[in-house]
Amino acid sequence: MRGKYQRQLVGVLGDPVDDNPTVVMEQAAFDSEQIPMDYLTIQVKCGDLEAAMKGLRAMNFTGINITMPHKGEVLQYLDEISESAQIMGAVNTIYWKDGKLVGENTDGKGFLKSLKDGNVVMEGKNVVILGAGGAARAIAVELAGAGIRNIMVINKNSDHAQLLVDIINKKTPAAGSFMPWEGCVRIPKDTDILVNATPIGFLDDEKPDIQYKELPKNLVVCDVIPNKLKTSFLQEAEKYKLKTFNGMEMLINQGALAYELWTGRKAPVEVMKQAMRKEYRES
C-alpha cells in the first residue's frame, strides 16, 4: 500500500540513453490516467548493469525498460523470463509478477504491429536484417512467427550474426542465413523487407553503408531508431520511392505493451501517439 506522497518508479536503462524519447509517451500516458508513476531516463554504462539491477530491486521500482547495450546481459539478473524472450535471448521490458522480477520482450511485437497496421504482407516473404543485437533478435523471432520464409542477417561481427542465424534455424519455422558486412553491401534482389536494427543513425545523420541505387523496387524499408521520424536511412530509401516505416511507431506499440504490464490497464495509445507527435512537431 503506497501513501499519497509515494510515487511508483519506472524508466529505461541504457547507454546511450539521453536521446531515448520513451519518457515522452509513457509519462503522458500515466498522467492522462492519473497514475502516480514517474518514468526516469537512466544512463547505465557497460559493467554497471548488475549494480543497477540490484538498485532496481532495492528501490522497489515497478518496472523498467532495457535498451542498448544491455538487452542480452540483463537475463542473468531476472527471476523469470518469458518464452519468446528466452528464444530471442533479449529482454526490453521488466515487471513484477507474484513477487518475481520478470523479463519480457515487446520490441518485436511492436515492430510486427507497425507492419500489420501498414498492410504489409509477410507470409512467404524474404527479409534482410542489418545488425544482430537485441532488437534484431526480437524482430527476427516475431517475423518468423508471422510467416516470413527467409531471414538473412547482415552484420560485421560474424559470431553475433551466427548466433542469431542459429536461433532462427533451430527455434523458428523460418530459414536463416548470414552475409558478412564488408564495405558497401548489396542487398539481394529477392528481398521484400529490409530492416535497420543497428544503432547507426541514433546520434547523428549516418546511414548504413549499402547500395541504395540497387535496392529492389517494391522493397519495404524499416528503421528501429526511435528518436527520429525520418532517419538518413529512411530519407535515402524514399528518394527511390520505397515504402518506409520509422522506429517511432514501433516504439509506441511496444511502449503500450510495457504500460499494460506495469499498470494492469489498457494503454491510452492515442494519448501516447499525440505526445510523440507533439514532441516531434508532426502534423
Rank of each mutant, 00 (worst) to 15 (best):
N20F: 15
S232H: 11
E249Y: 02
E83G: 01
A146R: 08
W262T: 10
P268E: 06
G55T: 01
V165F: 01
R7A: 12
E249V: 10
G47M: 11
M179C: 06
A52T: 14
F178R: 03
I168C: 01
A51E: 15
V121E: 09
I87R: 11
I81G: 00
D159C: 00
P16R: 01
I81E: 02
N60E: 15
D117L: 04
E182M: 10
I154Q: 08
N157P: 01
A256E: 15
G264V: 01
M250S: 12
E249T: 07
Y240Q: 12
D15T: 12
M250C: 03
A136Y: 03
L261W: 14
I81H: 06
F202R: 12
L130V: 02
A174P: 04
D192F: 13
Y240P: 07
T198G: 09
I129C: 00
A140T: 09
I252K: 05
S232Y: 10
V224L: 13
L219D: 00
G145M: 07
V269N: 08
F233G: 04
G134T: 05
G11I: 06
A85L: 09
P208Y: 07
W262D: 04
L215Q: 05
K207C: 12
D19F: 15
K273S: 04
S32P: 03
G55L: 09
M179S: 11
A138W: 06
V220H: 02
G134V: 14
A237T: 02
D192M: 13
G124T: 04
G264F: 07
I81T: 03
R7G: 03
A90L: 06
G3F: 09
M248V: 13
V91T: 08
P36Q: 05
K171G: 03
R265I: 02
K230Y: 08
N157H: 13
G255C: 00
A136S: 15
Q162V: 00
K243Y: 07
K243L: 07
R2N: 07
Q274E: 15
V102P: 02
V102D: 08
Y5L: 12
G72Y: 03
G3A: 15
V91W: 02
K213C: 10
K239M: 14
A52F: 11
I94N: 04
T41W: 08
I129D: 03
I200Q: 10
N227F: 05
L219F: 11
P199K: 03
K228D: 09
A58D: 08
N65F: 00
C46S: 15
D159K: 05
R2Y: 14
P16L: 02
K170F: 05
E73D: 15
G147F: 10
S232C: 12
A28N: 08
V10T: 14
A85K: 12
D166H: 01
F202N: 06
W181N: 11
G201R: 11
P199D: 06
D79E: 09
D107F: 06
Q34A: 10
V121I: 14
N169V: 01
G55V: 11
P36H: 04
K54M: 11
N246Y: 14
I210H: 12
Q254T: 07
E182F: 14
N119I: 02
I87P: 02
T172S: 09
D204S: 13
N60A: 15
N246W: 06
V127K: 05
I167D: 06
D192S: 14
Y259I: 11
